[in-house]
Design a protein around this nucleic acid. Structure first.
Length: 437
RNA sequence: GUGAGCGUAGCUCAGCUGGUAGAGCAUCGGUCUGUGGCACCGAGGGUCGCGGGUUCAAUCCCCGUCGCUCACCCCA
């Protein structure tokens, strides 16, 4: 207890411990289950890539690339021989879409049949100041569809999958916002129009928004400042300035979403921070999160693969912030009941020990979570520990049981107990296990 | 990068107008060698984040520093 705490988790990182880790596993497993029913399959990419990959796909001017990446130099690459070897820098991934696009190109996935439907989950890294729901190492679950088609039905299916997932994990009280931010043809025109209008009202805006007029006018639209809201409400809306193709695409998407019964809100002020987004963009917000309330963001990125040197390819995807989603679930109350320790083996006396060891192994073979005390304990202590560990049952093995070749199984919730033969015990617990799932 | 708030036991927190520290919970042991949750008794655990200043004396006042939290920016 007098240890000096010499080491601690570095700023913005944290340990996810039991019992939370069980919730995390369940959350991620549910994503796998749902996504695979939609024909998605797992892709695992490295957690670091060449800095340039992120710079080019996310955009050099974005904050994510500009000031939030953990970047390190390769130093002396043991593989390179000459002094003229390029000194490359690597960065921990701030998101994974760029990596998936890179992998798509590198592995020539355009030659695979159908669209590439990929999902991933894992840690991402951004060097921001931590706050509620924001970490420097945070976790995302994402999915991407890459291929030749940009059919609105793909967008709708991706959104349907998202909604189904959130429902499955019990994350209610969420809102899905959908928008279209146009394509490389119509968006620049709108951005210029917006910039002009913003210049006219510049003196009514705060310093942040004034700066954004030149750097990124779209960002003014999602300003949180109350005094700017009336001004923003009068700004031109992108939905009125989409090109014919984008307008058609967005209309079809609305139709497709209706067909699937997906409840959403059109939000003309929803813009995304990453450069690669085109047309469809969306976001899901949840309750109980402080000011970082987006649990999922995504959209279409039709030019990205080509931008990275790949073949002309359409793409759409999203990323769920697991930290935030799970936080929201925990704040919201109803969490799943996850199975914990099934059986605590309360053995007493050295004569009972071999029996305890053997039955423990058999129960574990049957798939049950079993705790076997390594040292003999007082019987009361034993049951007390079983209780504290949250075991469903205590399996009592003492002189009596050994003598009669039976086991005493006690259900801790209601103190119900009975004597069983080994066969009866195994059958009973196995049926219990199946029933509890 | 900017701003605000907070740092006392493993956790949650008391600690008056300055006089060198307490509670609850948790942990461990006992009452209790075949029946847990309860109760009672006891134990361990603190350089009061760190450094400096003021003072006879600092957990308390002042300065600095580090850390945490929340918010801004931005984003999942």
């Amino acid at each position: 207890m007098t240890e000096k705490r010499e080491f601690k988790a570095i700023k913005g990182t944290r340990d996810i411990l039991p019992p939370d880790s069980a919730l995390w596993n369940w959350f991620e497993q549910t994503a796998r289950d749902v996504f695979e029913t939609y024909g998605f399959r797992d892709i695992r990419t490295p957690v670091f890539e060449e800095t340039e990959l992120f710079a080019r796909s996310i955009g050099v001017e974005t904050d994510v690339v500009n000031k939030e990446m953990f970047t390190f130099s390769t130093g002396h690459d043991p593989d390179s021989t000459g002094e003229s070897a390029p000194d490359r820098t690597y960065s921990l991934r701030p998101e994974a879409t760029a990596s998936v696009a890179r992998a798509y190109i590198e592995n020539e996935m355009q030659t695979l049949p159908g669209n590439a439907k990929l999902y991933y989950m894992g840690p991402m890294f951004r060097r921001e100041r931590p706050q509620k729901g924001r970490y420097r190492q945070f976790y995302q679950i994402g999915a991407e569809v890459l291929g030749q088609s940009d059919a609105p039905a793909i967008d709708a299916e991706v959104l349907e999958m998202l909604v189904v997932f959130f429902k499955r994990v019990g994350l209610t009280r969420t809102t899905l916002y959908v928008n279209s931010i146009g394509c490389k043809d119509c968006r620049p025109q709108y951005v210029e129009l917006l910039r002009e209008k913003l210049r006219e009202v510049k003196d009514q805006l705060g310093p942040d928004s004034q700066r954004r007029i030149e750097t990124n006018p779209l960002r003014v639209l999602d300003s949180k400042l109350p005094q700017e809201q009336p001004i923003i409400a009068k700004l031109p809306r992108i939905s009125d300035h989409l090109c014919a193709e984008c307008r058609e695409h967005f209309a079809k998407l609305n139709e497709e979403l209706g067909l699937r019964g997906i409840v959403y809100e059109e939000n003309w002020r929803l813009v995304r921070g990453l450069d690669y987004y085109t047309r469809t963009t969306f976001e899901v917000t949840a309750e109980g999160l402080g000011s970082q309330n987006a649990v999922c963001g995504g959209g279409r990125y039709d030019g990205l693969v080509e931008l990275l040197g790949g073949p002309p390819t359409k793409g759409i995807g999203f990323a769920i912030g697991s930290d935030r989603a799970i936080l929201s679930m925990q704040e919201g109350g109803k969490l799943p009941h996850l199975p914990g320790l099934a059986v605590f083996v309360a053995w007493m006396g050295q004569a009972a020990y071999p029996t305890a060891v053997n039955i423990t192994r058999k129960l574990r073979t049957a798939g049950l979570a079993v705790e076997l005390p390594a040292e003999e304990m007082k019987f009361k202590k034993s049951l007390g520990l079983a209780d504290k560990l949250g075991a469903s049952y205590a399996l009592i093995i003492g002189e009596d049981e050994v003598a009669s070749n039976t086991f005493t199984l006690k259900r801790l919730a209601d103190s119900e107990q009975k004597k069983l033969s080994e066969l009866e015990l195994l059958e009973y617990l196995e049926s219990e296990r199946r029933g509890s799932r």
